[in-house]
Amino acid sequence: MGAAGQDGVAQEIAAQVQQLILSRELSDGSRIPSERDLAVLLSTSRPTVSQAIRILVVKGLVESRRGSGAYVRLRPEVNLAASMSLMLEVDPESVGSLAELRLSLESTGVVRAIERATPEELAEAERALRRLAGSAGDIASWMSADTYFHATLIGASHNTYLAAMFDSAHTALIDYEYRAWVDSGTVPRWLEPDRIGDLTAIHEPILRAVQRRDVDAALYAVRHHHEVMSRHLRLSA
C-alpha cells in the first residue's frame, strides 16, 4: 500500500477511536487500549494504529505518556481548537496571526500565574517540565508533554476562559506544526534526544521566572519560546 493509502487508513482508524471517545465509551482520563490490542480489535497494523494515535494527539483528544500509553483527554475547548484549525485550513497564511494570538494569551497567562499560582500548581509545573525533558525523540509524547507543560502554567492564572483560549490556540498550532511529521511517522531533527538541552532551554526559563515571580523575565522567556516556535513553523510550511 502506498503512503497515501496508509495515511487514509490511519485517518479511518483515528475516526473510529475518536467516535469511541466522543460516544463516551472511553471516559476522560481513561487509558486507551494498547496499540497491539487496537490493531487486533480494528483489524489493522500496529504502525497504522500508532499513526492514528498521533493524529488524535494533535487534535487534542488523546494524551500520549511515554512508557505508559495513550489516555483520553476530553476538554470543552476541543471545538474551539477545531474551529481554529479549520481557519488555518482555509487560510494557511494566517498561521502567523494565530501564533501572535498564542503569544498574547501566554504572556497574559504567565503574568496572572505569577500573581496567583499556588505552591501545588508550581510543583505540578515542575513535574510537567521533567516529563517534557523525558519525551524527546517520541513525537506523540512530546506533543502531549509540551501541551501539558504550557497548559499547567496558564491554568495557574486561575482564569478558565484564558486557559481555554490559550489551549485551543496552542493545539491548533501544534496540529499545523507537526502534521507533516505525524503523517510520515518521522521525528524532526530539533526533537531528537540529543537536542534535549535546546528544547529545555526554551521552556525552563518560563517556569523559573514564574517561580521567582519575575514578570519581566517571564515575558522575555515567553517571547523567546515564541520566536523558536515560529522558526519551527516556518520549517513546517
Score class of each variant (00 low, 15 high):
residue 185 G to W: 00
residue 208 R to N: 11
residue 213 R to H: 04
residue 211 Q to D: 05
residue 181 W to Q: 03
residue 191 L to R: 05
residue 193 P to G: 05
residue 157 S to C: 05
residue 116 R to M: 03
residue 190 W to G: 05
residue 148 Y to M: 11
residue 142 W to E: 11
residue 181 W to N: 08
residue 116 R to F: 10
residue 133 A to N: 12
residue 123 A to S: 14
residue 157 S to V: 04
residue 118 T to L: 14
residue 188 P to Q: 06
residue 127 R to K: 14
residue 164 A to P: 10
residue 167 D to F: 06
residue 121 E to V: 03
residue 140 A to I: 06
residue 133 A to P: 01
residue 174 I to W: 06
residue 160 T to H: 10
residue 213 R to E: 09
residue 191 L to I: 01
residue 187 V to A: 02
residue 149 F to R: 08
residue 214 D to P: 08
residue 187 V to F: 04
residue 144 S to E: 09
residue 201 A to G: 12
residue 189 R to D: 14
residue 148 Y to Q: 12
residue 171 T to L: 07
residue 139 I to K: 03
residue 186 T to D: 09
residue 109 G to L: 07
residue 170 H to N: 15
residue 112 R to T: 05
residue 182 V to T: 01
residue 134 G to F: 13
residue 176 Y to Q: 07
residue 200 T to V: 14
residue 164 A to M: 10
residue 111 V to I: 12
residue 125 A to Y: 03
residue 182 V to M: 04
residue 143 M to S: 09
residue 192 E to C: 09
residue 199 L to I: 11
residue 141 S to P: 04
residue 171 T to K: 00
residue 196 I to A: 10
residue 164 A to Y: 04
residue 145 A to G: 02
residue 181 W to A: 13
residue 138 D to N: 08
residue 140 A to C: 10
residue 186 T to I: 01
residue 143 M to W: 06
residue 207 L to S: 02
residue 132 L to W: 15
residue 118 T to W: 09
